[in-house]
């Protein structure tokens, strides 16, 4: 016993300097690791800051030359170096909105099916399939749109729309002109197919967060499945659904490859949805490497800045909404 104590004491006195040094080293290493990770986290902030600064800096010549008139002008003439962003902005917003109008109801209905109707054994395969499809690169949708979907529309849907709505006052101008195949409508439809998996998987996730008790109570007083969905599930998850929709909208606004193939890249605003148009991302993808002269390049970067600002706000709203529903339920 005494021996042990002695040995212990002896060991301690002898080891004390080394032990102190080891502890010091460990403490220093910890501080270093802490600061390295902190630096990486700050690096993420710097990245976003860098994107914004680089875009503003690169687009400066365009803003100096055209001022805020850049946002309101439809002209796009590389020869006379006269540029305006209105046509791409219009195309971006219109294609994204049409895509959402189509994809949101379908996506919500699919989530209703998955959460309320689907037999359990089918739930996982269908859910997984939809999540996998969300990961398919957009260029696949683009190439399919160009070679399969656009010729198909040219032969079927577009002539149909033209003849059916040809004599209806407002709609006739909406569906006017020859069926090119490519154009705003085709791009919107492809975008709709692309964002469908996103909207479906997010709305399914928020639908599943509804407590079973709430639904059971509604079923218990004799509600039909649809009444449970309409009066309990959707009101309860409203914020989350809006968040998911905004996230899909963010994707649709910034989508490049799927649109570039089929939009036709025409810098003009036509009333007809069948006419070719352009979007911000399609214009950049098509023209950037061919842009000659500082003003042309700067104008395209200015388009990129506008796109970034639009998506920033849409995504910020989406995150805010999704965070709100998580806080309420979680």
């Amino acid at each position: 016993m005494i021996d042990v104590t002695l040995r212990k004491n002896g060991a301690r006195t002898r080891a004390l300097p080394t032990r102190g040094r080891i502890l010091q080293r460990l403490r220093r290493n910890d501080a270093i690791y802490r600061n390295v990770t902190r630096g990486a986290a700050i690096g993420v902030l710097v990245l976003l800051g860098g994107v914004i600064v680089a875009l503003i800096d690169g687009s400066m010549p365009a803003w100096r030359a055209f001022g805020f008139g850049f946002l309101a002008s439809e002209r796009w003439n590389p020869v006379t170096e006269n540029f305006g962003a209105l046509a791409p902005i219009y195309g971006t917003v219109v294609t994204a909105l049409i895509a959402m109008v189509i994809a949101v109801p379908i996506g919500l209905l699919i989530s209703v099916f998955l959460t309320e109707l689907c037999p359990t054994w089918l739930k996982r395969p269908v859910g997984t399939a939809i999540e996998l499809l969300a990961g398919i690169p957009s260029i696949i949708f683009g190439i399919w749109g160009l070679f399969v979907f656009a010729p198909f529309l040219q032969g079927t849907l577009q002539p149909f729309l033209i003849t059916v709505f040809g004599n209806v006052p407002v709609l006739s101008s909406l569906f006017a002109g020859p069926p090119y195949g490519i154009g705003v409508l085709t791009a919107s439809l492809i975008l709709a197919i692309m964002v469908l998996p996103f909207i479906t998987s997010i709305s399914r996730d928020v639908f599943e967060q509804v407590q079973a008790v709430l639904k059971e109570a509604a079923y218990g007083i004799g509600c039909t499945t649809w009444e449970v969905v309409w009066n309990v599930v959707i009101p309860y998850t409203r914020v989350g659904i809006i968040g998911g929709i905004m996230l899909g909208l963010g994707r649709a606004l910034g989508e490049t490859m799927a649109v570039t193939f089929v939009i036709g890249n025409a810098h003009k605003i036509s009333a007809s949805l069948l006419a070719p148009g352009t979007t911000i991302s399609a214009a950049i993808a098509n023209e950037f490497t061919e842009a000659v002269g500082d003003l042309y390049t700067a104008s395209l970067i200015a388009l990129g800045l506008i796109l970034f600002v639009i998506t920033f706000f849409v995504l910020a709203i989406s995150r805010y909404m999704l965070a709100r529903i998580e806080r309420r339920i979680g």
């Binding site: 993420v44 994107v51 800096d57 490049t256 950037f288 796109l307 998506t311 920033f312 995504l315 995150r319």
Partner: peptide
């Protein structure tokens, strides 16, 4: 910020690196 970057349009990233 990370969530924003996660869904930011990838073409903008291309412009950034170009710059």
């Amino acid at each position: 910020v990370n969530d924003i970057l996660l869904s930011a349009p990838s073409i903008v990233v291309g412009l950034f690196i170009y710059e």
